[in-house]
Amino acid sequence: MSKIVVFTGESFKGRTADFKNNVRDLEERGFNNVISSLKVIGAPWVAYDDKNFAGKQRVFQEGEYATLEDKGRFSSLKMIIDDLDNPEIQLFEHLHYQGRSVTLRRETNLHDIDFSDTVSSHKVKGGVWVLYEHVNRQGSQLISFPGEEIPSYFPLSFNDELNPMTLMLLMPCSTFELQEI
Rank of each mutant, 00 (worst) to 15 (best):
T166I: 07
K123F: 01
N22V: 03
E88S: 12
L26S: 01
E10D: 13
N33L: 05
L162V: 10
F60L: 06
R15M: 11
L142S: 02
V135N: 14
D18L: 04
M165S: 15
C173V: 09
L91I: 04
E64I: 05
G72V: 06
D112H: 10
A66R: 15
L84Y: 00
K71E: 10
A17L: 09
F12D: 15
D114S: 15
R29F: 14
Q98A: 13
D18H: 11
H122K: 08
D50P: 03
L68T: 00
E28W: 08
D83Q: 14
D25G: 11
L26H: 05
V23C: 06
D83I: 09
T103W: 04
K3H: 12
H122E: 08
E133R: 00
M165K: 15
T108V: 10
V34S: 10
L91K: 01
N109A: 06
K20I: 09
L162H: 06
E148I: 01
I150N: 05
I181C: 10
R58G: 05
L38M: 08
D18T: 12
I35T: 12
G42Y: 06
V119D: 02
E149L: 08
D83W: 09
R106P: 00
T8D: 02
L68Q: 10
E62C: 10
M165N: 14
G55Y: 04
K56T: 07
G127P: 13
M79I: 15
E148K: 00
E10C: 03
P155N: 12
L169E: 09
V6K: 09
V46K: 02
S144K: 07
Q57P: 08
A17D: 13
F158S: 01
V34M: 04
D70M: 01
V124S: 03
S36N: 09
F31A: 06
S37N: 06
D25S: 15
H96R: 12
A54W: 07
F19I: 02
F115C: 02
M79G: 12
S144E: 10
K51Q: 09
P172T: 04
Y132D: 07
L170F: 11
N32D: 15
G63N: 05
D85L: 11
T175I: 12
N32Y: 05
D18F: 11
E62R: 02
L162R: 09
I4C: 04
D18I: 09
D25Q: 12
E148M: 05
E148P: 00
I113L: 12
H111K: 04
A66M: 09
L167C: 14
R100I: 13
K123C: 04
K123P: 03
T108A: 06
S76K: 02
Q57F: 06
P164Y: 07
T175W: 02
I80M: 04
V124Y: 07
G99V: 06
F176C: 08
E69C: 07
S120G: 04
D25E: 15
S75Q: 04
N136A: 13
F31I: 08
K20W: 14
S76Y: 00
W45C: 02
F60G: 03
D114A: 14
N22E: 04
W129S: 03
K39W: 04
D49N: 14
F7C: 12
K125M: 13
E133W: 01
V59D: 00
F31Y: 04
L68W: 03
D25M: 11
